[in-house]
Amino acid sequence: MKKLSSIILFLLIFTTVFAQQSAGVEMADTLRSSGKIYVVITTIAIVFIGIIIYLFSIDRRLKKLEK
């Protein structure tokens, strides 16, 4: 009887561990659902656009220099 109860106990421990593993992966869902991720995206987009405009202006100056 003791054996059986301990086996059941261990089985139950296993299920709790397993449940934690499957539900415990945290993602940044709250940040994204509250809409603040768009702030980050806008920042990145502005930085990227700035760099690209800079690259194009270098390109244009080079074209002038080559002529």
Binding site: Q21, G24, V25, E26, M27, A28, R32, I37, V40, I41, I44, A45, F48, I49, I52
Partner: peptide, 25 residues
């Protein structure tokens, strides 16, 4: 090139990714 990278900057942050332990976002 600009259009492709610009698309990935936005889609990379918004689109669905698999939920994995350790890695998270």
């Amino acid at each position: 090139a600009v259009v492709l990278v610009f698309y990935t900057l936005i889609a990379g942050l918004l689109f669905h990714v698999p939920t994995l332990p350790i890695l998270h976002e």
